[in-house]
Write a protein that binds this DNA or RNA. Sequence first.
DNA 1: ACTCTAATTTGACATCTATCTATGCAAGCT
DNA 2: AGCTTGCATAGATAGATGTCAAATTAGAGT
Lengths: 121, 121
Amino acid sequence: MSKQELPIVDVCCAPLACEPLSESEAAELAPLFKAIADPVRLRLLSLIACHEGGEACVCDLTTAFDLTPPTISHHLKVLRQAGLIESERRGTWVYYWINPAVLARMSTLLTPASTAFAETA
Amino acid sequence: MSKQELPIVDVCCAPLACEPLSESEAAELAPLFKAIADPVRLRLLSLIACHEGGEACVCDLTTAFDLTPPTISHHLKVLRQAGLIESERRGTWVYYWINPAVLARMSTLLTPASTAFAETA
DNA sequence: ACTCTAATTTGACATCTATCTATGCAAGCT
DNA sequence: AGCTTGCATAGATAGATGTCAAATTAGAGT
C-alpha cells in the first residue's frame, strides 16, 4: 500500500569503526536511527518482533500504551517510512511485521570493529 | 571531567525480538539511539572510532564539517552525555574516544533474534 | 442503505533541537 | 602580565517532533 518513498539500502554495511562514514552515508543512515530514537517506537518494534507469527495487528499494539490510536498510527508510519516495518491490510485489520534486513544493517553498523570491548571497567 | 549524569547500563541486553521491551527499558534505550540519530553525530562517532590510537582531538573533528566549532562542541556533548564517548583534556587539546561497551549493547539490541534474514529480496 | 468498528489523516499546539553569534575559560607562549 | 589558540557555554531563533481531538476512509455485518 502507498509505495511513496522506498527506503534506500544501498549504503555500505561496514561497522562505524572501520572507516569514516561519508556525508551521504551518514545522511541515509541517520533517519533509520531517528526512527527508533523514541521509547514508543522502540517498544512498538519490539512488540511487533516478538508477536507470534512475526506480525501484529494494530489493535494488539494500541492496548499496550497510554496513547490514542492516532498517536500509535503516527509512530507506525514513521517506522514504516524508514523501512523498518511493513504492513498489509487483511479484512478489517492491518498487520505489521518487521524488516529484519534493515535491523541487521543497523546492528552491524554499531558493531565495535575490533570487538575489543569486554573490559567492563 | 564533569561527572554529571553517568549513563545507565543496567538494562537488559537481549535483542529487541526476544521479549517485548518494558516501558522503562525503552525509556533508557531511546536516548542512546537519539544520540546517534543525527548525520553529524554519526560521522563524529565514526571519525573518532576510526582515528589512529582510538581517539581524536576536537581539532581533528571540526575540520571535517562545514559547521562552527560551537556546533561540533554541542554534538560532542550530546554523545558524551549519552555515554557513547568519553573525553579528557591533555594540555591544550581535548581528546575524545568511544565507549565500545555501549555501542555493543545497542548493536546487540538490534540483532534480529532469529537471525532469519539473508533473504535480500 | 445503514451502522459499527478498525485504522489513518488532518490540523493545531507545546516542546525539543540544530545552528549560529557572542562570550567565557583554560593552557601555552612571549 | 598580556597575547593567542583551543574549546566550551550562553542566548537566540527557525524548524522539527510528539501528542491529541476531530474528521475521514475502509470493511464487515446486519
